[in-house]
Every structure is written in C-alpha cells, then in structure tokens.
C-alpha cells in the first residue's frame, strides 16, 4: 500500500485514505448491486491503477457487466460507492468512454457508421452545437484508427460482427476520455479485428489512458492485460497479472465450472 495521508478526524479517529486510491481512475468501495433478491455483486472493493490495462474475469453471471455499469453510475447500488479520479462517478461521466456489448443494440437501426461514431461527440456538442470541421476530421481519424474509414457511409446493419465492434470502439475514441470501459470487446469477432482492437487499446495505454475490459478468454488474458480483477459475485482477487493469474485463484473464481485440465493448458506459474 502507498503511504497514507491523514485527512481529517471523525469521531476522534483518523480517517485515512490511501494516497494511491485518491486519484485512481476507478475506485470501487463495498459495492453491492442486486437484481431482485440475489446479489449480482456483493461487497466488491477494488482500485484500478492508472495507466493500466485491466481485465475483469469471471464465469457467466458473475456480475462482470454489472460491475462496469455500476462503474458508469447507471445501475442502482444497494450499498457502496464508486469514485472516478477521486470524484463520485455521477460527476465524472465525461471522463469515461463506454463500449457496450455488441449484442445490446438493434443493428437494424437506421444509421450509418459515421452517424454512430458522431454520437461520441455528443458530450462536446450538446443539444444543438454545430459539428466543426475539426470535429468531423477527428471522427474520421477515429474510424481510421480502427480501420473502418472506408465504411463511413455504410448502413450499420450491413457490417459483420467484428466491424460492428470496431465502430463501437471508434465511437469511444471519439469521446476522448481518460478511462475506457469495454464490455466483452472480443466476443464473436474475427482474429484480425481482435488484433486491431488490442493494438488500439495498447496505444491508449501508452498515451496515459486507463483501459478496463470484461474479458472471457483465459488463454489471452496474460498476453493482453497487465492487471486482473477476478470476480464471482465477490471479488476473488485483484492485482498485477503476474501475481493474481494463478490456478488457485482461477479455481476459486470458477469453482467446478472450469475443468482442471483447462487450467493446466494455461501453463500458469505454480502457486
């Protein structure tokens, strides 16, 4: 833990906040979210380090997507709080870019690729702001970065799954955020797209941004990410990949749902 600073006293006791948590891009404390009577997340506590590439990993129904939505401040919390760069998340939404699951929208919507990426400009444009030539250029650059510039005029329903995912990523890039939250960006995309997306995410990290992905492919976790959060309703473990990505932790996360032969194939360091 980093050196702590004493901020104030309350009930005669020092209130301590770790210096590193204070400005973390994403600090989640005691977060519990439930849909109905069963908690989707229970008392999750985690701090995402700045400039990291973090994977959120866990079995289906473990609350990974819920964790992202809570981090965006768009699901009701039963308890706990979420801070983004030291402020309540509700006040910091313009610092966050979110890439939802591809399947969560109706791709039959009447819009072109360009229209979708332009949506990322809304926080800058407001209700009636004109789109300046520089902003239009920025949008085209974002499409260029994901290799979709030539599809700008294409109807979104005509795209393949991988292309749809790239368009969503371009929209997030257009937001020019500091924290990128992606929900299963590699689900059902082709190998070329996976490579292109990871390259973009790496360059974001190199430019000082923080990237958090819900990820489901254990085989690529160690290659793509440097920080790991294992969840299954509870937080199982979090920390640098090298320390946390162990077969013991994976067993604890997945329980019987992950065959031990599968874990052996990952060639993890023995714990």
């Amino acid at each position: 833990m980093q050196p702590a600073i004493t901020l104030a006293t309350e009930y005669g006791k020092a209130v301590e906040i770790a210096a590193s948590d204070d400005q973390s891009p994403l600090a989640i404390r005691e977060l519990t979210v439930s849909y109905g009577e069963k908690p989707a997340l229970f008392s999750v506590d985690t701090v995402i380090p700045a400039q990291s590439m973090t994977a959120i990993v866990g079995p289906n129904g473990a609350g990974k997507s819920t964790l992202l939505k809570a981090a965006l401040g768009i699901v009701p919390r039963l308890s706990g709080n979420v801070q983004v760069f030291g402020e309540p998340v509700e006040e910091m939404q313009d610092k966050i870019a979110y890439v939802p699951q591809r399947a969560s929208v109706d791709w039959d919507f009447p819009a072109r690729v360009l229209d979708v990426v332009m949506m990322g400009l809304y926080p800058q444009l407001g209700l009636l702001g004109f789109i300046k030539p520089s902003q239009k250029k920025h949008v085209m650059e974002c499409l260029e970065r994901v290799g979709m510039a030539e599809f700008a005029e294409r109807q979104i329903g005509q795209l393949s799954g991988g292309q749809q995912q790239r368009v969503f990523l371009a929209r997030a890039l257009a937001q020019n955020a500091d924290l990128y939250l992606l929900d299963e960006p590699f689900a059902g995309v082709d190998a070329a797209t996976e490579k292109a997306i990871i390259a973009v995410l790496q360059s974001l990290k190199e430019n000082g941004r923080t990237v958090v992905c819900v990820h489901h492919d254990l085989a690529t976790v160690a290659d793509y990410f440097d920080h790991l959060l294992l969840v299954n309703i509870r937080k199982i473990a979090d920390g640098p990949i090298s320390e946390v990505f162990t077969s013991e932790n994976l067993q604890a996360t997945y329980g019987g749902r992950l065959a031990s032969t599968h874990i052996d194939q990952l060639k993890l360091p023995a714990s």
Partner: peptide, 15 residues
Amino acid sequence: KISTFDETFAGSIAI
C-alpha cells in the same frame, strides 16, 4: 436518437 439506438451508452454519457 442516441438513447433510442443505444440506451446504455446514452446513460454513460449523462443523457
């Protein structure tokens, strides 16, 4: 337009 197309994203940009 944005919230009709993608409600979660709309929520994430404070619409």
